[in-house]
Simulated assay, not measured.
Amino acid sequence: MKKLIEKGIIGIIFLGIVLAGCIQPTQERTAEYSAEKEPFGIFAAFAQKHGLTIAQTREFFKKNMGITQESKIIEQLPSPSETFEKDKLKLLGSTAEELDAIPKENYSQPTFFGDFETSGRDQWINAEATTPMSHGIISTPADQYATLAPESKEMRATLFVRAAWGSTYYQGIKLYATISPEAAIQFHVNPEQFLLEPTFPTIHQNWVEKISIRGELTGNVEPGTYVITIKMSDPDIENVTKWIETREPYTNGNGSFTDPRGVATLTLNVPE
């Protein structure tokens, strides 16, 4: 009986050592975590996915991307203003003037756009040691609707054109508007040409551009529904030359956008 008890004690002690060894990585995984340094939960999610500690995760990002903490991802961006949450809600439905009034310090935050939580964070959570070269364009809100006010001689729209999540290229953009069916409306896009900067591995300051669109009635426009499409073309050669010389890697954004619906669609109703 004494031998059985001794074996039992030894077994319990051994089991305790094994269990302690099993739970230790979990404890380390949550240690050293800082909401200030890791505001998006990316490092914690990466550590959990790959079975690493937070310290090991930081070492991975430091070695392969030069990022020592999550806050470095948005280090180039300005701090949001106190109206950030209110401005964010405006994307769900607002006038062109209300969207146009949103300051850059708010719309340049990645969390200003809802798809950051669904696909943006994944670019870092699924990151590999070698960063693939990629580029792409996203516009928000991509589908807009408006009714021309009585006696009004113009229509307005505002949208945000941005580099896709995971973009490593600088992308030169030129926008223009078309209308169907044809109507006596002259469009002004501001800015018409601009450069979008990368969103990976860090988000650069000019990764998103706010676009103001104004349609000026230059003649009689029949009542009905008109579809205005915002399209993209290659920037002027002088801009392309300048950007190639000063930004690397560079590509024309037009080559990465193949959606036949264009960058954005504005449906305009002209009442009788």
Rank of each mutant, 00 (worst) to 15 (best):
F113G: 03
L99Q: 10
K153W: 09
Q109R: 09
D115I: 03
G136E: 01
N106H: 10
R121F: 01
Y145F: 05
P132M: 03
R156G: 04
Q109A: 12
Q123A: 15
R121P: 06
T147Y: 00
S119V: 13
A146N: 08
A127Q: 02
Y107I: 14
S139T: 13
T111V: 15
D115V: 03
S119D: 02
P150S: 00
E151C: 00
F160M: 08
P141V: 01
A101E: 14
L159Q: 13
A129Y: 00
W124M: 06
P110N: 14
P132N: 02
F112G: 12
S139Q: 03
T111A: 05
G120K: 03
P132D: 02
G136H: 00
N106F: 15
I125W: 05
E151P: 00
A127N: 02
E98A: 15
A157F: 15
P150Y: 02
T130K: 13
T131K: 07
I138Y: 06
E105Y: 06
R121N: 05
T147C: 06
K153N: 13
H135G: 00
L99I: 03
F112S: 10
F113V: 06
P110S: 11
A142L: 12
K104N: 09
L99G: 09
T140Q: 07
E98W: 14
S119I: 08
P150G: 04
D143G: 13
P103Y: 14
E105T: 08
Q123P: 09
S152G: 00
Q144T: 08
I102M: 08
Y107A: 10
E105S: 15
R121E: 08
D122F: 11
G114A: 10
P132R: 01
E128T: 15
R121L: 11
G120V: 01
N126A: 11
A149T: 09
H135T: 00
A157I: 08
I138T: 15
L148K: 04
D122S: 15
F116I: 05
D100F: 13
N106K: 10
S152Y: 00
E154T: 04
Q144F: 03
W124A: 03
W124L: 03
F116H: 05
P141H: 02
L99D: 03
P103F: 13
I102H: 11
L148D: 04
E98I: 10
T111L: 12
I102S: 10
I102Q: 11
T111P: 03
Y107R: 15
F112Y: 10
S108I: 07
Y107V: 11
S139H: 05
F113Q: 05
T118R: 06
F160L: 05
W124C: 02
G136D: 01
H135A: 04
A157R: 12
N106M: 09
T147P: 04
E117N: 06
A101Q: 12
E151Q: 10
A142M: 06
Y145D: 07
E154Q: 04
F112L: 12
Y145W: 02
A101T: 11
E98N: 11
E97Y: 14
